[in-house]
Design a protein around this nucleic acid. Structure first.
Length: 477
RNA sequence: CGGGGUGUAGCGCAGUUGGCAGCGCACCGCGUUUGGGACGCGGGGGUCGGCGGUUCAAGUCCGCCCACCCCGACCA
């Protein structure tokens, strides 16, 4: 690890972001441009994200399966909008075993097509529905500009694919999974997100409606952090996913898909991180507690270490580590674990041992202000309490930051000014022209039309025409 | 693809007029240290991005190529 100070977020946010990932050993660049290695510390965070989501998927009746990486090129071409949307970013295999292939194979950029093909084989009757399958997988999109976690050519995600008998049921599923993502983001990651519908131009290639959870990063830019799509009968028609209903009539299914990727790790980093480094939400943190013993002499060491061990044993119910390295000083360890964002640090020195306490240092409150002495007696319960406090403090802080950077400008000039450093929440007539002009003028895009609408009508922020919905507009990643 | 930049030890860099390839950090060993990024001594580590040319001699000069980074049009 480098001993140099991180760049601060205010002086260079994107450099801060890169540095913090590399130094905290979340990920590293790999030899192929645009791809990354997710290192154990980053992957553990992903595993915790997976567990929290997977539990929710199971609770809502879904099962996991695995579909192949390779997809026949012709499959992509079956859905017109889908292929148009994805063809510029496809990786295609044309040679296998030294022979030119009869038909090129696409490395999946997403799996609607191959899953649609399989569903058409499996679904015969209304009795087979609904089909509620999720897969945890990697996908490949040939991106031009890449960033660690936010946009890499290969990334890891989950993609849920469901098929239903009725439109209402499929729409309900789409929104249910949007709720699952919202609940996960807020209650597990402490990332306050705004659920909403994507505009026509921003929606998924092949979807009827796309929904998103949008989060505000520490530089006020927006990050699409998860998506849920109502696919209508588009893929059902392209892949002949049909069933016989109760009156023996052949019907097309209604399908959905929904995904959340390793990009979410970027959301956690950029939502909670500070100038010392990462700040992990306790519920997802790879390490929740780190214990740092402090001693000067062998005698002190002999007094401190048994207590440190005892505390370590007492906290086994948490994701805990005893940092007993002898080659670095406690001061170094403090900085090291702060960089890695461990929510709670427990310092144990001779003075603490003397008094039968440990010193707990909260990651979310730097320096002396975040330190308190905790009696060793009943420590686990207090640690549990502190971690919960930190979890909710992170959510509160991020929510306050977000709300402080959302404004409702009265006119178009006000919008142009406001999107330089925040989001705007404004009436929009819904026209592509207004949306395009705003993007051209400001580089900001419509992020989502939130589910919670104020009701009534207003005047479009751009053209002044009648508007029925309000929209968030912001510069986005 | 357009514009700008950089390639020398794992990382960050220096290398003058062409003349023994260096510094800091990291790494290894020994000792002293340890409540907010310790220090001393000793050590290991190089196809100077690649190919070609000029020259007695090229990291340095010339040509071509390659890779990566940053800024713009597409994207979870």
């Amino acid at each position: 690890m480098s001993t140099e100070k991180l760049p601060t977020r205010s002086e260079n946010f994107s450099e801060w972001y890169n540095q913090v990932i590399l130094r905290a050993e979340m990920a590293d660049y790999s030899p192929v441009r645009g791809t990354m290695v997710v290192r154990p510390y980053g992957w553990t965070l992903w595993e915790n994200i997976k567990d929290a989501l997977d539990r929710r998927f199971k609770e809502t009746g879904h099962v996991n399966a695995a579909f192949p990486l390779f997809i026949p090129m012709s499959f992509l071409e079956k859905e017109k909008e889908h292929v148009e949307g994805f063809s510029p970013e496809l990786a295609v295999v044309t040679i296998g075993g030294g022979e030119k292939l009869e038909e090129p194979l696409v490395v999946r950029p997403t799996s609607e097509t191959i899953i649609g093909y399989m569903y058409s084989k499996w679904i015969k009757s209304y009795r087979d529905l609904p089909v509620l399958i999720n897969q945890w997988a990697n996908v490949v999109r040939w991106e031009m500009r890449t960033r660690l976690f936010l946009r890499t050519m290969e990334f890891y995600w989950q993609e849920g694919h469901t098929a239903h008998a009725t439109e209402a049921e499929a729409r309900e599923e789409t929104l249910r999974m949007l709720d699952v993502y919202t609940d996960f983001a807020i209650n597990e990651a402490a990332v306050p997100v705004i659920p909403g519908r994507k505009s026509e131009t921003e929606k998924f290639a092949g979807a009827v409606e796309s929904y998103t959870i949008e989060a505000m990063m520490g530089d006020t830019r927006a990050l699409q952090s998860g998506t849920s799509h109502f696919l209508g009968q588009n893929f059902a028609k392209a892949f002949d996913i049909q069933y016989l209903d109760t009156s023996n009539t052949l019907q097309y299914c209604w399908t959905t898909s929904w995904g959340l990727s390793t990009r979410f790790i970027g959301a956690i980093i950029m939502t909670h991180g500070d100038d010392q480094g990462l700040v992990m939400p306790p519920r997802l943190a790879p390490l929740q507690v780190v214990i740092v013993p402090i001693y000067r002499s062998d005698e002190e060491r002999a007094k401190v270490m048994p207590v440190a061990d005892q505390v370590f044993q007492a906290l086994k119910g948490f994701r805990v580590k005893l940092d007993d390295r002898t080659e670095v000083t406690p001061g170094f360890k403090f900085n090291d674990w702060e960089l890695r964002g461990v929510p709670l640090r427990i310092e144990i020195g001779p003075r603490d041992v003397e008094k039968g306490v440990v010193t707990a240092a909260r990651r979310d409150i730097p320096g002396k202000a975040g330190k308190t002495a905790l009696p060793i007696e009943g420590l686990a319960a207090q640690v549990d309490e502190l971690l919960k406090t930190i979890q909710s403090a992170l959510l509160e802080r991020a929510t306050a930051f977000r709300d402080a950077h959302i404004s409702e400008p009265a006119d178009y000039d006000g919008l142009k000014e406001a999107v330089k450093d925040g989001w705007v929440y404004v009436w929009w007539c819904g026209s592509k022209e207004c949306e395009a002009k705003i993007k051209e003028d400001t580089r900001a895009t419509t992020r989502c039309i939130p589910m919670n609408q104020p009701g009534g009508t207003g005047r479009c922020i751009h053209c002044g025409g009648e508007a029925h919905e309000k929209v968030y507009i912001a510069r986005a990643y």
